[in-house]
Design a protein around this nucleic acid. Structure first.
Length: 837
RNA sequence: GGGCGCGUAGCUCAGCGGUAUGAGCACUGCGUUGACAUCGCAGGGGUCACUGGUUCGAUCCCAGUCGCGCCCACCA
């Protein structure tokens, strides 16, 4: 006998254990001949992370799909794994060292530090796996992978070497986004532009050959800048070629204040006459635009910042370019040297001001680049880094989507994808970190790089290059964490080996992920998949929204508005949380989550539980020999048809990734069709003649089973529990998750629909009138039906008992409506309730 | 500067070219004769942001306005 209420906490763990014990999630289960494969790779969560609402949504949707397809007979592989998350993980461990007042990373040395990170990974790396299990995720855990596994690392090295040999990976000296806090280059995607209040300093640069006089405008040219400290690295001033104000100055030189260097005034269309003073200082080593201008004009690049953003000045500045450094200049240099950039800014401004070299200072709002991890202000810096030729790899990736080989759902994300892919910049993949895949490049004594999958390979190449064995040093940098995740769809399947899994499950069917990593991850998987496997890694890409709090704010620890999915699971059960997330996953909209909604769906689980309890009490057990198509009782024919409609609705919606519609359809069917009406209407039949009662018991059980199956992808625990409970007597397979999805049998019956529809409307109408007229519930009233057809009379005869009970009537009669009665028109008949006004 | 999305019940959201049978929560009334008080039944509550247009008909399609959010972009 089932308990009166459903207690998820007491059974979810056991059920999950039973699934694992039965090996129910393994690819190839259940064994069915000729099953079509269906594969999903999980977006690998950070090893050090713990389950947040975004994971809960993402993985619920995947599990719904995976369970659905498994029940539909597909051979499902849901490939799980975790990501090493280079910067994030390194920061976590570094912070931990600091908190424990242990020696820092550099004091520790590279090897010891990496050992430490691995240790941390072993200790807490599988927290998130346990949490995914708590959610009910049916991944094939026997295939769990980690981006720094031996196998995946081998894939990384091989792809790196192959792309290098194909000229698609190269080393280049360019400006990069430099994070002066983490002391590493980062990619464009890891930079956030943040609107900041600052100032615009208008600086006067004296013209060579004139005596600088603040009152003589001809003696200087004004340039505007938001970063005055970079002026030390200026190597030109640019004006627009058409700008009449400055035409006469082009070709002349300015003298760089404080430094004394002679810098040319050049004409370049980059300069915008509308902006600032119309003349712009050019600092090629510290600004992306200036870098281009510098290249066009062959300007020298003067780096004035050390990696940690301190000014770095040569006390014997060659860059003064022939101007002998005066004593004053030397003092200035010594004073500024090694000063942190923002302090230096202040010093430089003061110094310029004292010399009358500042025309004005305006308040100015502009966007300033910040590192997304460190939150430090990024400095463009000229360094040697490794790059992927993304523009070349992007071409087939664009084609694949244009030709419909891969489809985004919702479709409008394709616009975003195309826009980014068509304007893609070289991808900087080297990071000056320790935690990650070390770049497989070794350098000879003269700095020549030898790229190979291992040191022996590099040595062989070096030996043949130099004609003798030489000492090699390995590149110290590691790869961007997204490099290894870009290979995820095939590296997890065993590539570069030709494994059976790779042949069977690649390309995968669908990727489910959030829009925030379309560029970071989806685009890169497309590029790598097409290049390495020559086939796009997935057929569909389903993009879901972000989960926000109930006020629509992004959840963040600092705001304190984080809803922990594990808390909700603890309180309401995993099923309720899953159902909520699926029901709210409408396409193209953020999800504002509130606990009350979860509570509502917990109640839904209870409702279902009690329907099963009703079935149990009334002995409604599934009969293997029962064929619903042979049902004779109108009510039974009706509910069979209704169950077909919900089957079609759920199947169709899930096939089209409309999770909310699917959830809504099964919810409506179970609660508002099966429970509200069928179970109520079948009570008198169960108490009546044996033949009809037996058929009804069988039908009630048949439809309940169907409901459990349809609901299972959303609420796997409660459905499994009820299935097992009901199965115990009959020896059918007890694992609902391996049961087949129902087939459409064409059970709809128009006559039954009409009759039961009529009955439901009649009862509803009478109830409605009673409520409006404030008739006490205990009071029974008569119903008089006028103009009833023979059919109506027959229907009343068949359902009179039900009508009396559910509409609280004391009798039903035919005849003229009494004067003053409330009348309702239902089909051809008029219902009249003689109620005292 | 480009691009995307959103404004529907008190709140959080579905939905849709044909009178909004909308969902959860909240609210009101009635109800514990055994499936279910973690409940049932019924009810109140919506000029579907605004203005034009297309249409027999618009909340839905189109244009514009207002409000809100997000993404991309090197602007001094």
């Amino acid at each position: 006998m089932l308990d009166k209420t459903y207690q998820p906490q007491t059974i979810e763990g056991e059920i999950y254990a039973a699934w694992e014990k039965a090996d129910a999630f393994a690819a190839g289960r259940p064994e069915r001949a000729g099953a079509k494969p269906f594969a999903i790779v999980i977006p690998p969560p950070n090893v050090t992370g713990s389950l947040h609402m975004g994971h809960a949504l993402n993985n619920t949707l995947q599990d719904v799909l995976v369970r659905f397809e498994r029940m539909r007979g597909r051979d499902v592989l849901w490939q799980p794994g975790t990501d090493h998350a280079g910067i994030a993980t390194q920061m976590v461990v570094e912070r931990q060292l600091m908190e424990r007042q242990e020696p820092g990373r550099r004091a520790m040395g590279r090897e010891a530090f990496i050992r430490r990170v691995w240790q941390w990974k072993e200790e807490s790396g599988n927290t998130i796996v346990g949490q995914l299990k708590r959610l009910g995720c049916s991944c094939d855990w026997s295939r769990l992978r980690f981006t720094m596994d031996d196998g995946l690392s081998r894939a990384v090295r091989k792809v790196f070497v192959d792309l290098y040999r194909a000229g698609l990976i190269y080393k280049d000296k360019r400006l990069v986004n430099w994070d002066p806090e983490l002391l590493t280059a980062i990619s464009d995607l890891e930079v956030e532009q943040i609107e900041t209040k600052g100032h615009l300093w208008h600086l006067r640069y004296p013209i060579e050959g004139t005596e600088f006089d603040p009152d003589n405008k001809a003696s200087y040219i004004v340039v505007a800048t938001t970063r005055p400290e970079t002026m030390l690295g200026d190597t030109a001033v640019a004006v627009h070629p058409e700008d009449e104000r400055y035409k006469s100055l082009v070709g002349k030189n300015a003298i760089l204040p404080l430094v004394g260097r002679r810098i040319p005034i050049v004409a370049d269309e980059y300069s915008d006459p509308e902006k600032g003073s119309g003349a712009v200082k050019i600092t090629p080593a510290h600004d992306f635009n200036d870098f281009d201008v510098g290249r066009r004009h062959g300007l020298p690049m003067v780096n004035v910042l050390s990696p940690d953003a301190k000014l770095l000045l040569d006390p014997n500045p060659e860059f003064a370019q022939g101007v002998a450094p005066s004593a004053e200049l030397r003092t200035t240099i010594l004073e500024l040297n090694g000063v942190f950039r923002f302090a230096a800014r202040k010093l430089i401004v003061e110094r310029l001001e004292s010399q009358g070299l500042i025309e004005k200072i305006e308040p100015y709002v502009h966007t300033v680049p910040h590192g997304d991890r460190s939150n430090a202000v990024i400095e463009p810096r000229l360094t040697d880094q490794w790059y992927v030729d993304a523009a070349t790899l992007a071409k087939p990736a664009i084609e694949a989507v244009k030709r419909g080989r891969t489809t985004f759902v919702p479709k409008n994300w394709e616009t975003t994808y195309f826009h980014w892919m068509e304007n893609i910049q070289p991808w900087c993949i080297s990071r000056q970190l320790w935690w990650g895949h070390q770049i497989p490049a070794w350098y000879g004594p003269d700095g020549k790089a030898f790229v190979a999958e291992d040191e022996a390979g590099a040595k062989a190449e070096a030996t043949s290059h130099y004609g003798k064995a030489v000492a090699l040093t390995r590149d110290e940098d590691v790869l961007d964490t997204w490099f290894s995740s870009a290979l995820w769809p095939f590296s997890t399947l065993g590539w570069p080996d030709k494994t059976p899994e790779l042949a069977r499950y690649y390309p995968t069917d669908v990727l489910i992920t959030g829009f925030d990593i379309i560029f970071f991850w989806v685009a890169r998987m497309m590029m790598m998949g097409l290049d390495v496997m020559e086939e796009a890694p997935f057929r569909d890409v389903y993009i879901h929204a972000l989960v926000r709090d109930e006020k629509g704010q992004k959840m963040s620890k600092s705001k304190g508005n984080v809803i922990d999915p594990l808390d909700l699971i603890e309180t309401y059960g995993a099923d309720a949380l899953r159902f909520t997330l699926a029901a709210m996953a409408a396409q193209g909209r953020d999800i504002k989550l509130s606990a009350s909604r979860v509570e509502g769906y917990r109640n839904f689980a209870t409702k279902l539980w009690n329907a099963a309890r009703f079935a149990e009490i009334n002995n409604c057990v599934p009969r293997p020999d029962f064929d619903p198509a042979t049902a004779k009782v109108t009510l039974n024919r009706w509910i069979a048809g209704e169950s077909e409609r919900s089957l079609a609705a759920v199947t169709e919606a899930l096939t089209a990734f409309r999770f909310n519609e699917a959830a809504g359809a099964i919810y409506h069917f179970i609660w508002h069709v099966y429970c509200d009406w069928y179970l109520e209407l079948c009570k008198p039949i169960l108490a009546g003649g044996e033949a009809e009662a037996a058929e009804t018991r069988a039908m009630a059980a048949f439809v309940l089973d169907r409901a459990l199956v349809l609901l299972h992808p959303f609420m796997p625990f409660v459905t499994e529990e009820l299935w097992a409970e009901r199965a115990s007597e009959k020896g059918r397979p007890s694992l609902l998750m391996l049961a087949p999805w129902p087939e459409h049998r064409g059970l709809a019956d128009a006559q039954a629909d009409a009759e039961i529809g009529w009955l439901i409307r009649l009862i509803s109408e009478v109830r409605s009138v009673r409520a409006e007229m404030n008739v006490p519930a205990g009071a029974k009233v008569p119903l008089v039906i006028a103009g009833a057809s023979a059919e109506t009379k027959a229907r009343v005869a068949r359902h009179e008992e039900t009508m009396l009970r559910l509409a609280r009537l004391d009798k039903v009669e035919f005849g003229k409506p009494p004067a003053g009665a409330v009348q309702i028109v239902l089909d051809e008949a008029t219902l009249a309730l003689p109620l005292a006004g």
